[in-house]
Design a binder for these strands. Sequence first.
DNA 1: AGCTTTCCTTGATCCAGATCAACCTAACTG
DNA 2: CAGTTAGGTTGATCTGGATCAAGGAAAGCT
Lengths: 251, 251
Amino acid sequence: MTLHSHRLTDRDNPIADDGDEVRFCSACAFSAASMRAGYDKAALRDLHVLVEHVGPYRAGEHVFRAHDPFRAIFAVRGGTVKTVSVDADGNEQVLGFYIPGEVVGLNAIYPERYPCDAIALENSYFCRFSFPAISALATRMPGLQQQLFKLISKELGMATRLAGDHGAEERMAAFLIDLAERYATQGFPVRRLHLAMSRNEIAAHLRLAPETVSRILGRFRETGLIALDVREVELRAPDQLHALARNVLGR
Amino acid sequence: MTLHSHRLTDRDNPIADDGDEVRFCSACAFSAASMRAGYDKAALRDLHVLVEHVGPYRAGEHVFRAHDPFRAIFAVRGGTVKTVSVDADGNEQVLGFYIPGEVVGLNAIYPERYPCDAIALENSYFCRFSFPAISALATRMPGLQQQLFKLISKELGMATRLAGDHGAEERMAAFLIDLAERYATQGFPVRRLHLAMSRNEIAAHLRLAPETVSRILGRFRETGLIALDVREVELRAPDQLHALARNVLGR
DNA sequence: AGCTTTCCTTGATCCAGATCAACCTAACTG
DNA sequence: CAGTTAGGTTGATCTGGATCAAGGAAAGCT
């Protein structure tokens, strides 16, 4: 196995340590939207005034907890978070994994409480946006409003795909492709990815047993679809993976 | 079997034939929000000018189709719709069922195309809202913006519950309880419900085989949880059903 | 009315993936 | 650095729900 990719560290990370105040959140979903919509510096400043940098959270620390009153959404600036819902019997369901540039907490708008825990998988940093404040601002910035709609709707699409009926291999392939593509949009290499989450967590996300996750990854490795060194993955045959994931991803 | 409930017809339906222009959409998610927020008649008029009544659609007719460009969302005024996504192999997944007062099409915001078909299950009527128009209006009506956020977020919650890992009985119980509660908020009897959808459609929603749906309903009947006459259901032991559904619904 | 079709139910068998079990590996601890 | 623990892999067995198969009701059509 030739795969000894040194994983991307905070040092390499194109997002985590951008110290410039104005460009600080350039990777963040909101400023990107604002820029696209052609807002002036003043509008951007409103956003920046509103934002609150939080972190670092260490691996295992809660960003928010289920049943906490909903006050803010969090844009991941660096690191990785999972959202988890634990039912009465203690079964853990991982609702999602969030990487830099993505936004956590949108599922709390309707219930007005967080319906899940958000837990850092590694050292993580966030931009915290008071939700009342950002939605008030959205009233004056149609582009921001639109962006918020899109973010929630996108999340809805993800949840829907996850709800689909599909074989374990299909779901696993879709998981890898989706994650790789999301990293790619954030400027990471397309065919390489580091899994910040354990097999257990992947399993709890895809409603599989951890053994099944392990076996399927093993099979993918043996059939040359991927190279694998525990948590380092290289997509060797993205097209075949895509073909497997086709029915899940809907393209 | 003592269950010969004459089902609610259009005539009985508290929503379908409310002819008064101003109160017309009183059941609809948007005017309700506007009222709550204390908007004046003028704001309500803006909403009413914007709305377009469409229908009837007969059972089996498309309200919109997958891949159509996204232009509008639809509030159900009367009848029932399902949203369905058909994958490359022809497998049908029912994403949701929508009853009067609910809104269809919100999952199209992000992709900017409808990601599914919407098909009437019976004679159905809608209020059609141009999405650009309603979001422009939302800019001037924070309460409406908030309502839109909530609607999408609520939908997200539904999709998430559907994505959960749960036994067939739990999911079936949750389906019945959820549907009954949704009807209840629209002024229908709490313990009675008419299933507008076939066993096949329930199965395609809950990722079960239709045979399993049939068997589980049969079991619920035999254990006295429900009374059942094909599509007429009476919840005989809502508490026990709730207990079964607990882990799915999260309460 | 009969005929057709679609939907629903019930029984028998099968299988994808869960569970149980054993062991391996790497990282953390004192 | 031995000892401990958490995470990962791999094999053997079990099972919930799918699939296959065969009839029964309703509902629409001629």
